[in-house]
């Protein structure tokens, strides 16, 4: 009759299992666990590197953004300055033009005045000449009498009034 419990089997198991565990640890667990540990470290360092790279990229991006903003501000300032200059220049030109126009107007007025005066003087001269001419003719025609003298006097008086 076979026994349900064979103590030799227990002895064999304890000894065999100790050897088995030793062999399996050497052959299997050590390389596998070492590999898993290395893989874990590789993944961790990879993640760490990725995190650093991302931070670097973010810093770079921030710097670029800042530089871009500064450049934009500068450009804005340059445009404003240019606009101001242009405005000032325009004002100056406008003023100069106005002054020029004023001056030309003044010149024109003066010239007109002068020419008018000249014209009046010329007219007066002409009138006197004409009067003289007329007087001469009259005197030539009727150089007699009181009347002629009176006429001459009148003409002279006339001329004198105009003078």
């Amino acid at each position: 009759m076979a026994e349900l419990f064979n103590v030799w089997e227990t002895v064999w198991t304890v000894i065999s299992f100790a050897i088995f565990l030793f062999l399996l640890t050497r052959l299997f667990y050590r390389p596998v666990m070492k590999m898993l540990e290395e893989r874990r470290q590789t993944i961790e360092s990879g993640l760490e590197e990725a995190r650093k790279a991302r931070e670097q990229a973010e810093a770079l991006n921030r710097e670029y953004q800042e530089r871009l903003a500064a450049a934009q501000r500068e450009a804005q300032a340059i445009i404003e300055r240019a606009e101001q200059t242009a405005e000032r220049f325009r004002q100056e030109r406008l003023q100069a033009a106005q002054e020029e126009a004023e001056r030309l107007l003044q010149q024109a007025r003066e010239r007109i005045q002068r020419e008018r005066d000249d014209a009046i003087a010329a007219l007066r001269q002409e009138a006197a000449d004409l009067a003289l001419l007329a007087a001469e003719r009259i005197i030539r025609r009727r150089l007699d009498g009181e009347e002629q003298r009176r006429l001459a006097e009148e003409a002279i008086a006339e001329v004198g009034r105009v003078q």
């Binding site: 349900l4 419990f5 064979n6 089997e9 227990t10 064999w12 198991t13 304890v14 299992f17």
Partner: peptide, 18 residues
């Protein structure tokens, strides 16, 4: 199958105990 024998499983348990 070794685990169907009490002698073997006892060996395993003794190993755990030790």
């Amino acid at each position: 199958p070794p685990t169907s024998h009490w002698g073997v499983t006892a060996g395993l348990a003794v190993f755990v105990f030790l």
